[in-house]
Simulated assay, not measured.
Amino acid sequence: MSWFECKVTYEKEIAESGKVQKVHEYYLVDALTFTEAEERMSGEMENRGPFRLDSVKKVNYSETFFNNGQLFYKAKVGFIQLDEKNGVEKKKYTYMLVQANDFRDALEELEKQMKTTLADWTVASIAETQLVDAFRYEAPEAKPAEAQ
C-alpha cells in the first residue's frame, strides 16, 4: 500500500462561533492507486455534505506510527550507512509519520518505535503536519455463506 495526501474543501460549522465556514483540510489515505485514493476519500467525506477534492498526491512515508494522538508529525530520520568504496559514513534520509499529542510525545513515540532497529539512526527533524486524520485500509468483512 501507498499513502496519499488529499486536500478537501467543504463547509463546516465552527464550534466556537457556530458559523458555517468553508475549510480546507488534509487527510491521509492508504490506497494502491490515485483512483482508489480518490474513491476512498470521497467515501469518507460523503456524510459531511457537499465537498470538493482539490488534490491527491502520493507521499513517501517509510513507516507510520499511529496511536490516540490528536496531531500528526512528519519525522525525517537519517540512517547511517558505510560507503564501502570510499570508507566514509553517509546518511540516507527517510520520512516517517508519527501520531502524537505534541512534539515531545512525537519524539518519544518515534524513539520507542525505533528501539528495535539495528541500524544507527538520528532524527534530523520533526514537524507538525496539517493532517486532520488518516484513513487506513480495512479489508472488507467476509460474508457468511448462505444456507442451502
Rank of each mutant, 00 (worst) to 15 (best):
S17Q: 11
L71C: 08
A127G: 13
F103Q: 00
G49H: 02
K57M: 14
I80K: 05
I126A: 00
Q99D: 04
K74V: 02
E25H: 02
R48P: 08
N101W: 07
F51L: 06
Y26N: 09
E89D: 08
M1Q: 13
A124H: 09
R48E: 14
K74F: 12
D30L: 11
E38Y: 15
Y95T: 05
T129P: 06
F4K: 13
K90C: 01
Y95Q: 09
E128H: 02
Q21V: 12
K90E: 09
L32W: 15
V8W: 01
D83H: 00
S2T: 13
F4H: 13
E46G: 00
F103P: 00
G43M: 01
V56W: 03
Q113W: 05
F79N: 10
T129D: 12
Y137C: 00
G49D: 10
K115H: 09
V8R: 01
T35W: 15
Y137D: 09
M45C: 07
I14K: 04
P140Q: 04
V20E: 03
G87T: 09
D102F: 02
V98W: 00
A31L: 06
K22C: 03
E128R: 05
S125E: 14
E5F: 06
V59F: 08
F135Q: 04
K19T: 07
A31Y: 10
N60D: 13
E38M: 10
D54V: 10
F4R: 14
S42N: 09
A127N: 13
K112A: 11
M1A: 11
N101F: 06
F65C: 02
F103I: 04
A127R: 09
F72N: 05
G78I: 07
R104V: 14
K90G: 03
D133Y: 14
S62L: 04
V132A: 11
E109T: 05
A100E: 03
Q21F: 00
Q113S: 04
L71G: 00
D30R: 11
Y26S: 08
Q21D: 07
E13S: 03
N47M: 04
K19Y: 03
E36Y: 02
P140G: 07
F79G: 07
F34I: 13
V98I: 14
T129M: 08
M45T: 10
A75M: 06
L71A: 02
A31I: 05
Y10E: 05
K7L: 14
L107P: 01
A75N: 00
M96S: 06
V23R: 08
F4I: 14
V77F: 01
A15T: 07
V98M: 01
K58Q: 08
Y137E: 09
H24L: 15
K12Y: 15
S2E: 15
T64Q: 07
F135V: 09
S17P: 14
N86M: 06
G43T: 06
M96G: 02
K58G: 03
L71M: 08
Q130P: 08
E36V: 13
A124Y: 11
